Amino acid sequence: MSLTTPTAQGPVPNAHAPADARRHELAAFLRSRRERISPEQVGLPMTGRRRTPGLRREEVAQLAAVGVTWYTWLEQGRDIQVSTQVLDAVARALLLDPSERAHLFTLAGAEDPVPAVECSTVGPSVRLVLEQMAPFPAAVVNARYDVLAYNAQYTGIVGDLAALPFEDRNLMWLAFTPSYFRDALVDYRMERDVMVARFRGAMGDHSAEPAWKTLLARLRKASPDFEAAWQRHDVQRAGNGMKRFQVPGVGLLHCDYTSFWLGPRQGAARLIAYTPHDEETRALMDRLPTEA
């Protein structure tokens, strides 16, 4: 990891360092982010009596693998040189979300080498594809299992997502808490284990992001079944397969599901299409909802 090491004579001067006002803003921002994090959130033990909230500076330095003196000077707004590698490490140590991470790099006057790539919105072209998938259920889901968009037929197998709070429009949450989706998913116990393994596999690239940690904490608190599955440490990559749904007023559907990735890597959002596994299911799919 590349960084400038403090010396006994003081920080190394840098003609391109941010202006004083920006450095002071950076210092205040780092302190505020550090003070909101508990040791338990980052896997550190509670030791001794703490006079201030959140993490200590030396703990942030430890998590980011940088020198304590160097990090202290950074948080004091001193004129020191900082590499993008170090900013990346600090951002991860402080559990910054994409907006906070971008703000950190802006205040430091640096370009983020790993900008956010996760899809949080779905464009008109993808929505048109979802509509054209009818009568087959289809949805766009991100690596965290948030449902970002869907066609009317998809509500037949997961329920009325529009009636749910935004944070509950997540297949993991619906599978581990009482819901229409859990009732309709015939093999839900087996399917949940697969989802947890895929969630853990995807979380390796997102373990420092607050949205992922918040969902994980919610699931562990809400469901002993999720906690048990999580503790098994199984890992899978997202893929294709077959699911069975018992849809009220329609019948038993045997569905093959296929993932179409919407980004250059598998961690991006994906369009999932549910197609009939047999002729009986093909006929039943015509009875799924036609209006969202």
Rank of each mutant, 00 (worst) to 15 (best):
A149W: 01
Y150F: 05
A152L: 06
A152H: 03
Y154V: 02
G156S: 08
G156H: 07
V158H: 11
V158R: 04
V158L: 05
L161M: 09
A163E: 04
L164A: 03
P165S: 07
P165H: 02
F166G: 09
E167Y: 01
E167T: 01
E167H: 01
E167D: 01
D168H: 12
D168K: 15
D168N: 13
D168F: 06
R169A: 07
R169P: 02
L171F: 02
L171R: 06
L171H: 04
M172A: 08
M172W: 04
M172N: 05
W173F: 11
W173L: 13
L174V: 11
A175L: 05
A175S: 09
F176W: 06
T177H: 11
P178L: 02
P178I: 10
Y180T: 15
F181C: 03
R182T: 13
R182E: 11
D183L: 07
A184Y: 05
V186E: 08
D187F: 14
R189I: 11
M190C: 04
E191T: 07
V194T: 06
V194R: 06
V196M: 11
F199W: 02
G201H: 10
M203L: 14
G204M: 10
H206Q: 06
S207C: 06
S207H: 12
S207T: 07
A208H: 13
E209T: 07
E209A: 05
P210W: 09
A211P: 00
A211Y: 00
A211F: 00
A211R: 08
L215C: 02
L216V: 12
R218N: 04
K221F: 09
K221P: 00
A222Y: 01
A222T: 01
A222N: 05
A222S: 09
P224G: 06
P224R: 11
D225K: 13
F226R: 15
F226I: 15
F226T: 15
A228F: 02
A229K: 11
A229D: 13
W230Y: 06
H233N: 08
V235N: 01
Q236C: 15
Q236I: 10
R237I: 06
R237H: 12
G239V: 03
G241H: 14
G241W: 10
G241C: 11
M242N: 12
M242T: 15
R244K: 14
